[in-house]
Design a protein around this nucleic acid. Structure first.
Lengths: 221, 221
DNA sequence: TTTAAAATACCTCTTTTTAGGTATTGTCTT
DNA sequence: AAGACAATACCTAAAAAGAGGTATTTTAAA
């Protein structure tokens, strides 16, 4: 069997080092390169054509959108995501964007190895927490949703702007809508989320990575 | 020279593995144990009396308050914190709580090694980003603040409750204050932070770890 | 093609937030 | 003892948010 050719994509030195050592210990794997940023990843993919990319799309200099870019360009390369625990919606998004498998950084070595073998062959693998987070029907591994929470794209857009501190009127102006429309969206969103004020909306926005807590450069920073 | 005795405290498998391998490569270091939680850390510290604890106090099952607990009980043990990038205030808090040194997970191996040697001797070491974040006067390495941002404890308390979704009146009731007082605090806070609505307050609260983005268990999760 | 859902817009009314002030008390520091 | 700051409380008034509807149009799916 030829070796599984792997690129590591993670901006954290320790995670890369940890991964590299685990991969080196196994004769079936070979690490082609380490990508510290999305642009690294694009360049290295082009040059090496790896079988597998292990990526933390939440780490600095990467984004969840990088997944789709890679999947489209290199359909023969499979992606294994390994991130910290995060929201169901983000995980579902990563899977729907084309990540073959998904683990968490606190899962153990056996799971990692198994995930690598399966993912390289194009088989899906998810650690327990991920699976229970996003699988509606545990028997079908093809559709990923977060039961109950169907926030539309337009609603997401509006949540984001509200979290950025815009008033309903400002959102309306920005999106060329009536303030009534924005108000209605806001109400619908709050109903879906089960919250009743801006604080809830903003926390949701942070959780879904619609906005960074560092969005405001608070005075004196 | 006797070996530097180290405990690794981090709930991320990959970070632990990465650290362990770096430490193994150096004959001056010996890793006594790996702690996956705060209670692990307390037990292992009691048993091993390490020279150095390398900790990610932001990782699951640890908290920034663990620092003070360890420092008080074992004054001969020095702490080296390694975390993802986070807010100035949290970093300053960690340092004031007794962390000897502080790095970020994306710094490189040389810095890590240097930090370990120095920290084990009780000398302070900070990577560039950390230093520029918290040192007022680059020549004195003894006082850590975030210039310009003096939010009082009372104000922090109020920010937290607002971020939890309480109205001014509810905060007032909870703290046995007049709504006028809460309103005044809120205004003062917004002035200090340079924001003009609840969204800004909530983002600040998240950034300072006063609240988790998962505070609300949004419907359907 | 019928149905369902999303996006749009409007109305009313109450509560809350935001912005502009002033002012008193206590504590800590110089 | 003076000064600075934190914590407390009050006043007014405009702007915005929240809760309760209804209703039309467009889009997507069955």
């Amino acid at each position: 069997m030829p070796k599984i050719k792997i690129i590591i994509a993670d901006s954290h030195f320790l995670s890369r080092k940890g991964l590299a050592i685990v991969l080196e210990e196994n004769a079936d794997f070979t690490v082609l390169s380490e990508a510290l940023s999305a642009s690294d990843l694009v360049n290295h993919s082009k040059f090496y054509h790896p079988d597998l990319i292990i990526i933390d799309y939440t780490s600095a200099n990467f984004s969840i959108d990088n997944i789709q870019q890679i999947v489209k360009k290199y359909p023969n390369t499979h992606l294994l995501a390994i991130t910290d625990m995060q929201s169901n919606i983000s995980i579902a998004k990563a899977l729907n964007m084309g990540v073959t498998s998904h683990l968490l950084k606190d899962c153990d070595q056996d799971e990692l190895i198994e995930a690598i073998y399966k993912t390289a062959k194009g088989e899906k693998f998810m650690c327990g927490k991920i699976a229970s987070a996003v699988l509606i029907d545990k028997s079908s591994v093809n559709e990923y949703t977060c039961e109950g929470l169907n926030i539309s794209d337009r609603e997401m857009e509006i949540i984001k702007l509200i979290a950025e501190g815009l008033s309903n009127k400002e959102v309306a102006d920005k999106l060329f809508l009536s303030t009534h429309t924005v108000t209605t969206h806001r109400k619908n969103i709050m109903n879906k989320l089960g919250v009743n004020n801006t604080a809830g909306l903003v926390l949701f926005a942070v959780r879904e990575n619609l906005i960074s807590p560092n969005h405001f450069l608070f005075a004196g920073n």
